[in-house]
């Protein structure tokens, strides 16, 4: 399964807004961590998020499982474990921001890790998602956005 979809302006807008949401989220969770600690902040965010998700699902008349009970047909068990990875991320980043890397180094290397994994994920269609061969222009876009991000991150520190 190979797709070569380009993002439409709607996709661009949604992804951009989602990045803005992330900025607010990091800001809010950071504030909670300041009053408590990093683990507590992530724990509270996941707890309140679970409640919010249940409310959203109820409002939109959706079920967490599409069929009655049990996992969705054809869904591997590991597909339910995305949250483990997210929980471990908090432990790692709260360690590295307090190392000589500080916040800017943590952010920069984190972006690097995301880029490498995402390119590989598209190239080989990792974890059951469509394969998508990166083209030269994709690399150019990645290069520009990555370079711009580095300038902002290190210009601030």
């Amino acid at each position: 399964m190979t797709v070569s979809t380009r993002p439409s302006p709607l996709h661009l807008l949604l992804a951009f807004a989602s990045g803005g949401l992330l900025t607010l989220m990091v800001d809010f969770n950071g504030l909670v961590a300041l009053h408590g600690n990093a683990l507590y902040s992530s724990w509270v965010a996941h707890g309140t998020g679970t409640v919010a998700a249940i409310l959203f699902l109820a409002l939109m008349r959706q079920r967490p499982f599409p069929a009655k009970g049990g996992a969705a047909p054809g869904t591997p068990l590991w597909a339910y474990l995305g949250g483990v990875s997210g929980a471990v991320t908090v432990m790692l980043t709260s360690t590295t921001v307090n190392s000589p890397l500080a916040l800017s180094g943590t952010l920069a290397l984190g972006l690097g890790g995301q880029v490498v994994f995402s390119l590989a994920a598209d190239r080989w269609g990792l974890l059951g998602l469509p394969r998508r061969m990166p083209k030269p222009r994709d690399f150019a876009a990645v290069g520009l956005i990555f370079a711009g991000s580095m300038i902002i991150i290190f210009g601030r520190s």
């Binding site: 990045g19 994920a121 598209d122 994709d138």
Partner: peptide
């Protein structure tokens, strides 16, 4: 994955 990652990072 890469388009999602880069556009979200940009935002």
């Amino acid at each position: 994955a890469i388009n999602t990652a880069m556009l979200v990072i940009g935002g």
